[in-house]
Amino acid sequence: MSTPVRVSPLTDVQVAHAARWVDLEDMPSVAAFAGESEAHLAVVAIGDLSFRRRTGLKGPGAAAALADAGLATPARANSWCRSEGALVARLGLTEYLVEDSAGGTAVSRVLALPAAADVYPVPRYDAALVVAGPQAIDLFRQTCAVDMATLDAAGGALALTSMVGVGVTVAAVMTPAGVSYRVWCDGTYGGYLWDTLCGVVQEMGGGWLGSESLSRVGL
């Protein structure tokens, strides 16, 4: 058995429920969970997008460094934009998170940047989730103190807050499945966050989806 290049922080909590695995961006990911159903998207569904490549930069020179890598940055603090297919999130004033789409090269370009004054690399080993469905907002109401209904998905709003006691970044995004929410947290808390949110989602009549279903519905 070969050792995977990248390991999802959620592997341990997902392995018992996985029906099929697939390698995505060099990371073994759950392609389908046992008994999963896309019908959950009519209520609330949660999925794992940790396989996407991401990195971060912070410091007064971070925006200029990202521009050198050919990436646009959001003008406002706590917002995100798409650039070259990548999601570029501005966290606070001078910190940025860059997450590639499938096959993207934005992260590798950022990682290849030469060291510069006032720019500090931030390695990201996040657990990266997506929450979708008309009752997604109710999931946040049960687990978080920020009213996510106030986040403007079209305007690229995001919030840094706490969810079930875990520090998270939440971005509202427009998807073919409607307004969905991307959630990033420190990978070491990922298993707890995934388990807890799955419990709430299940109580609400929703469920969890593997990467194949997420891809089919454009998440």
Binding site: A77, N78, G92, L93, A145, V146, A159, L160, T161, S162
Partner: peptide, 17 residues
């Protein structure tokens, strides 16, 4: 809930601080 206002993130529960 007791709130505190972060200059960047706005009003949040004091438990986030």
């Amino acid at each position: 809930m007791k709130l505190l206002t972060c200059p960047v993130n706005g009003a949040r529960p004091v438990s986030e601080f």
